[in-house]
């Protein structure tokens, strides 16, 4: 009974969704400029690919995404571990964190432009900020949540310094929690990609902005789906990596 049923229902659901979507502009309920029919999309997609714009935009955005994510994640993990392990460090940063934490990545756009110009670095900066906080809090919580008993094992076998405990027990024990944070950041970073490119840095976001100002909504939808596909790909790859890293979990 179960076997194929979930897939069948998923296919029916998707078909219904596409059907309604197609019907709305065709029946004239909405003009095609406000809602392009799905059947228009393949042609729009091919046009974008042939002109080379699609490939360039994807590469630019992936580049911003990868570097921003890497920087934000790395800083988040390092500072999260440090504040998680050393209370005085946590106290020292407490108010800085409280002030900076609620500022959304987009609010940094003016400074990003002033500091880096309308440049890739500015986009990377904004993406990194978005990822940083998520990973920072995940890492801090994961380190604090490590079983005291396991830390004692390290101490009992002579690993008494902070770095030794980090390498032998804290980091591996906190890894699952940190990876959950990184996965959330993976999604957050895509939102930041669009935002960071809206003000003129090349990439998917910029192309969407151009298309929407020309009312080329079919192209906007092409890029929306492109982004969904890229996110799906990255997330799937990450889940695979995660399951390899955490193979020890029951």
């Amino acid at each position: 009974m179960r076997g194929a049923t979930p897939y069948l229902l998923a296919a029916i659901g998707l078909a219904l969704f596409l059907g309604v979507w197609e019907a709305v502009p065709r029946l004239g309920l909405l003009p095609p400029t406000l809602l392009p029919a799905p059947s228009q999309l393949p042609a729009a997609f091919l046009r974008e690919v042939k002109s080379g714009i699609w490939g360039d935009s994807v590469l630019f955005s992936l580049w911003h995404y990868a570097i921003g994510l890497a920087c934000g994640t790395a800083c988040g993990i390092v500072l999260g571990i440090a504040t998680g392990m050393y209370r005085p460090f946590d106290w020292a940063l407490a108010w800085i964190v409280r002030v900076l934490r609620p500022i959304p990545g987009l609010a940094w756009v003016p400074f990003a432009i002033l500091w880096f110009g309308i440049d890739q670095t500015a986009a990377v900066f904004i993406i990194a900020i978005g990822c940083f906080w998520i990973v920072f809090f995940a890492a801090q919580g994961a380190i604090r949540g490590v079983d005291r008993d396991l830390i004692e094992v390290a101490e009992a076998f002579g690993f008494k310094s902070g770095p030794e405990k980090l390498v032998k027990v804290l980091f591996p024990a906190a890894l699952p929690g940190m990876l959950v944070g990184v996965r959330t950041a993976l999604g957050q970073a895509w939102m930041a990609v669009v935002a960071s490119e809206l003000f003129g840095v090349s990439g998917l976001g910029q192309r969407m902005q151009q298309a929407s100002s020309l009312l080329a909504t079919d192209i906007v939808v092409v890029y929306m789906l492109t982004m969904a596909a890229l996110y799906g790909l990255v997330d799937t790859a990450f889940v695979f990596l995660q399951s390899r890293l955490l193979a020890w979990k029951a």
Partner: peptide
């Protein structure tokens, strides 16, 4: 020291767990 609950490190395979103290 052998603890009441084994306190093996769950992310290490058995051999690696036995190696743990030797890494010092």
């Amino acid at each position: 020291l052998v603890f009441q609950d084994s306190r093996l490190l769950p992310w290490r395979r058995i051999l690696s767990n036995v190696c743990f103290g030797l890494e010092k």
